[in-house]
Computed example of a mutant assay.
Amino acid sequence: MSKNVMITIGRQFGSGGREVGSRLAKSLGLPLYDKNLVEMAAKKLDISEETAEEVDETTLSRFLSSYTYTPATVVPYVGNVEYMEPINDKMFYTQSAIIRELAKKGPAVFIGRCADYALKDHAECLNVYICADKEDRIKRIAGIYDLTEKKAADKIKKVDRERRYYYETYTGKDWGDVTSHDIILNVSRLGMERTIKDLEMIYRGMTEE
């Protein structure tokens, strides 16, 4: 019986990390958990997917979230005023709990959502960080979103900043740092195909008895 090894993928925006995770999961025959985690968490919290998506891996609405009133977030407070636990905090803790439950079912690939931190007590994890050269990231995002290179660069800067803050706020670790991940791969240097094949090889080596 193969070992219950999880693969978690952190990624720079525009690096191709989502494609790496998707193709890797398909190649290995593993379930992929990415944006579907948002839907699962929304159902658990009894909030709309739109609300869940607004705070997923971002901190843009962090200030406003403190004023988001939903039945699921009400907590009692001394006096006549009720305060709310920020919805983004509830999203993080709920998604983390879901990730841990899914990991009990068998090997899987998780993209983002601080999955490496959520599974820090799991016996076997391959925590990967995918990056790429700035020029390649700009071209990729410009093509995907039909943006000028200037707007693509601005979007990359914004999303990376949000992902970094999200990761570092909830994990206490440095996003993209060699001490925070088991392996860091640059798609610009390796190419998409080799990046995926190298991860396949490493994963299969970890699952061999």
Rank of each mutant, 00 (worst) to 15 (best):
S2T: 12
K3D: 03
K3A: 09
N4Q: 09
N4R: 13
M6E: 06
M6R: 13
T8R: 08
T8Y: 09
Q12S: 02
G14N: 04
G16E: 06
E19F: 06
E19S: 14
S22T: 14
S22G: 08
L24R: 04
L24V: 02
A25P: 12
K26I: 07
K26Y: 02
G29Q: 07
L30Q: 06
K35E: 12
K35Y: 10
V38Y: 02
M40W: 00
A41N: 08
L45M: 14
I47H: 01
I47N: 07
S48D: 09
S48A: 02
E49L: 08
T51V: 07
E53W: 02
E54N: 09
T59W: 00
L60N: 06
S61D: 03
F63S: 13
F63V: 15
L64A: 15
S65E: 10
S65G: 09
T68Y: 13
T68N: 13
T70D: 04
P71W: 03
P71C: 03
A72K: 13
Y77Q: 05
V78W: 02
V78R: 09
N80V: 10
V81A: 01
M84T: 13
M84G: 04
E85R: 09
P86G: 01
P86S: 00
D89P: 07
M91L: 15
Y93F: 15
Y93N: 10
Q95L: 00
Q95H: 02
Q95W: 00
S96P: 03
A97N: 11
I99S: 03
E101R: 11
E101T: 13
A103S: 05
A103N: 00
A103T: 01
K104Q: 14
K104T: 06
K105F: 00
G106K: 12
V109K: 02
C114F: 04
Y117P: 09
A118T: 09
E124L: 15
A132L: 02
A132S: 13
D133T: 00
K134H: 13
D136C: 12
K139V: 01
A142C: 11
A142V: 08
A142F: 08
A142D: 09
G143S: 15
E149L: 15
A153M: 04
A153S: 15
D154F: 01
D160A: 05
R161H: 07
R163H: 10
R163T: 05
R163W: 01
Y167F: 14
Y167N: 03
T169S: 11
T169C: 08
Y170K: 05
G172C: 06
G176S: 01
V178E: 12
L185G: 11
L185Q: 14
N186P: 05
N186K: 06
V187K: 10
R194N: 10
I196C: 10
T207Y: 01
T207C: 12
E209F: 07
E209N: 12
E209Q: 10
